[in-house]
Write a protein that binds this DNA or RNA. Sequence first.
DNA 1: ACAATATAACATAAATAATGTTGAAAAAGT
DNA 2: ACTTTTTCAACATTATTTATGTTATATTGT
Lengths: 254, 254
Amino acid sequence: MKREERRQAIMDLLVQARAVDLDDLADRFAVSKMTIHRDLDELEHAGLLRKVRGGATIEAGTQFESDFRIRALQDSVAKDRMARAALDLVEPGMTVLINDGSMAAHLGEALTAKRPLTLITNNAAVIDTMRDVPGITLIALGGIFNAKFNAFFGVVTEHALSRLRADIAFISSPAVAGLQAFHMDDAVVRSKRSMMTAAAKTCLLINHSRFGRSALHVLADLAEFDSIITDGAPAPEDRAAIDRAGIRLTIAKE
Amino acid sequence: MKREERRQAIMDLLVQARAVDLDDLADRFAVSKMTIHRDLDELEHAGLLRKVRGGATIEAGTQFESDFRIRALQDSVAKDRMARAALDLVEPGMTVLINDGSMAAHLGEALTAKRPLTLITNNAAVIDTMRDVPGITLIALGGIFNAKFNAFFGVVTEHALSRLRADIAFISSPAVAGLQAFHMDDAVVRSKRSMMTAAAKTCLLINHSRFGRSALHVLADLAEFDSIITDGAPAPEDRAAIDRAGIRLTIAKE
DNA sequence: ACAATATAACATAAATAATGTTGAAAAAGT
DNA sequence: ACTTTTTCAACATTATTTATGTTATATTGT
């Protein structure tokens, strides 16, 4: 096991358990305490955790946990599965809108398989990786850079969208409750809504663990989306209402 | 001397002499021919030169020479000097517009000294480096990514600019002849003009070796700029007309 | 004050990158 | 055609960098 795997594993433990013990980690990974110290220092410096005497914690609920760098570490298998399912909706030559978020970043990379494409995005990770890919016309949306979501937002973004038209928009969301999707941030909601307006078709990407959660702002009714892709069935109680409303979920499997 | 220095030196030689000899390079840097082969392969792969039997060349005039990656290698001393001179025009708290080009990228980095600032740019290099700098509010302009100029252009860019207002715009240009600045690319000219309109003051940054050159499109009359910064005096014949018109150059010196 | 933890500084080990060597294949010159 | 030169691939060697461990000293919590 090498360094990055170990750090990833530490983050996984931390996300599960909210706290980890230094001695325990040294033991578990069979390395010296000093090495774990250094791992935790790095991860703390990257803003992923907080060191405390004898170990480290995530501060519940707050910025830490919702930071894009943590989300990028989580569930990358599920994200790849969903990205592959989303690929079925895309044909070469299309214009594709991609929103912020690490799910979207995965999707961006997967889309190289469908070149040539025009990609429109406010997602900094997508802009970085797709910039030099031949066969991809990349249109950045601009806006004020937001480090928390690693993307660009604001009037510049929304206004740029009002002048563009795409074949399909992929929208991701951290929370679905009942028949609505939610997001905690105002500016993010506005950018996603502008994208939905600018696209002929819309597709929602949502991790199955996010069903049954809500957040401050309503993003959209599920019925607004032409398709909804998830990586597994939501809990029966969450599913009931969705089925009753006649909304169909595409469950991406291995 | 280490690898990157050697490669940089090869590019310098190449820019001067248009062609280099493989045996000669191996000799000069006291390394094996194989090492030079590998250097040239790398540089060719990066699009910076063309390998020919026994050495390498730059293809005159064409894309090769005008590629931003080559320009970024040239004259970085002069660029730093000019950037430092430009700093005098900026105070903390201002909103600064930065255009495409490697000169502008240098300026971007230098501007950290004047934080807090709002930076508006279509320059991918600036977006990359300034994104995570605390005290810098970064507004990306968006647009279609252009790999040749490593920046974003088009209606999205121009339209975003029409809705923004900056204290000062720094404009760079590859050619000044008579009393006008020029640029070879249409879309680039439009973005620069939009920036000039969006800013209260404008400053032209121009390498002294670029006086006496012209290009397809007129970018602006020199008289339109509030200040013009260069790294050395232009040749007397070029200078005469400028002086006669009463235009003042700021010559950045060590 | 004392035990537990943290950190700094240096030492060692592992991994990676850079360069060199050789010999066969390809290209150019005659 | 054949000789010479150059290129290139494969492997060997050497440097350089990165990761980890060790030890000694400081810091913290009780």
